[in-house]
Nucleic acid binder design. Sequence first.
DNA 1: TTGCAACCTATCTAAAAGATATATCGTAAC
DNA 2: GTTACGATATATCTTTTAGATAGGTTGCAA
Lengths: 218, 218
Amino acid sequence: MPKKALSQYAILGLLCWKPMSGYDIKKLVEVGLSFFWNVSYGQIFPVLNKLVAEGWATKHADPASGGRGRVAYEVTTKGRKAFKTWLGEPSGLPQLRDELKLKFFLTSRSGTADGVRLLEEYGVQQREHLAMLKESEVVLRVALSQAEMPDELLELRQALGWDDQPDTHDHANELLVFYLTLRSGVLVAEARVAWVDEVLPILKAGKIPRQKSSKETK
Amino acid sequence: MPKKALSQYAILGLLCWKPMSGYDIKKLVEVGLSFFWNVSYGQIFPVLNKLVAEGWATKHADPASGGRGRVAYEVTTKGRKAFKTWLGEPSGLPQLRDELKLKFFLTSRSGTADGVRLLEEYGVQQREHLAMLKESEVVLRVALSQAEMPDELLELRQALGWDDQPDTHDHANELLVFYLTLRSGVLVAEARVAWVDEVLPILKAGKIPRQKSSKETK
DNA sequence: TTGCAACCTATCTAAAAGATATATCGTAAC
DNA sequence: GTTACGATATATCTTTTAGATAGGTTGCAA
C-alpha cells in the first residue's frame, strides 16, 4: 500500500474529540483548520465508511435529534490507539500549492510588468487574509485572558462544538492550542506580506540594493 | 467543467521558457519550484498529451540526441496565448497541507506532552529546510552581484537548463525572479521557526505571558 | 401551501500524488 | 566482450484528494 492517507487520520483525530457527523467534521475543519488543512465531502464519507470497516469507529443513526437522518460516528478504543500510533510516526514537510507565486515565477521571461501586477495582487490577497486571522486572534486572546465569556466567544464555542457539555470539561488546553495554531497562520501571513514589501521595489528597480533589509543582521 | 487544472498551466508556463521533455520538467520543478509547487510524473505525461491534443504544444521525437527515445514538447502560439490568458485570471489563496501542524492541533485534548514533542520536531524540520534555502540564496546573490561566474552558478545554470544558449539571452531577469521567489521561501520558513520559538514556552507554561512579543507594537 | 433557505448525507468526475514498470545508454567489473 | 549496474527517460497504474452537485429534510416566511 503506497499512500499516506493523511485525511483519514485527520478525521480520526477529530472523532477523538467527540462523536460527530460528516457535516460536523466539514464545518469544524472550515472553522479551525482551513489555513493549514482541508477536507472535502468527497473524502469525508469514504473515510468514515473505511474507519467503520476497520473497526476504528462505530456508526450510530441518531433518530433522536429532530427525526432528521443524522448519522454520528464515534471512535473506538482501537481507533484511539491507531491515532496515537500515527502521532508518533515521522511527518513530511508542509506541502504548498501557491497559485500566485507560481504565476509570478513563470513570468520571469516576459519582462517585469506581469510580475509587478501579480505581486501587488498577492499583497492585497495576503493582507486581507491576515486581517481575517487577526480578528479571530483577538477573540481568542480575550477568551484566554478572562474568565467571563463575551458574546463572540459563545459564537466560537458553538462553531467548535463546545456548546454541549457545560461543565464536564473546561476546554482550557484546547482553547490555548487553537490560539497557538492560529498564531502560526498569522506569522506566516505576515511573512508573505513582508515578502511583497521587500520584493516589489527590487523588481521595479531591476536590481537588489546594496544595503539589504535591516533584519538581515542576524 | 468543474476543475482548476493548475498543473496544466504550470507545465505550459515552463514550456514557454523553452522546449522540454517530461523528465526535464520534473527536474526543473524540483530544483526551482518545489517549496511552493510540485508536479508528479502522474500529472506530467497526461498533461503533455492533453496540451498536444488541444493544439497548445507540439511533440517532437528527437533522435538526434544520442539515439535515445527523447521526446521534446514545444509550445505553440495558441499555447502561449492560453498561458497569457491564464495569467490574467483571478487566483485562489495558497493551499497548504501541513502534517505536523495538523498533528499538533489534534493533540489538544490529550495534555501538552505530545504537543511539546511535535513542536520541537517542527522546529528541527523547519530549521533544516531553512538552512537549505539559505544556501541557494547565497549562490544566487553572488550570481546577481557580480559579472563573473563561480562554479556553483555554473551548476545552477545547468540545473535550470541555461547551459544551452551561451550569449543569445542573458537570463538576468530570470535570475532575479528566481532569487525573489526563493526569498519568499526563506521568509516563510523563518516565520515558521519564529512561531515555534514563540509558542513552545507558552505551551510549556500553560498560559500566555502578560507581555507579548515586542514586534506586536505595530 | 408554496417556495426557499439552511441543514445534512452522500456520490460522481476530474485532478493529483506516489509507486513502479519499461527501456536505453554509459561505464566499470568480470 | 559481456555482464552488471546506475543514471537517464518515458510512461502507466492505483490510490487519494478536490470540487461540484445530487437528493432529501426541516423550519419559516410570503
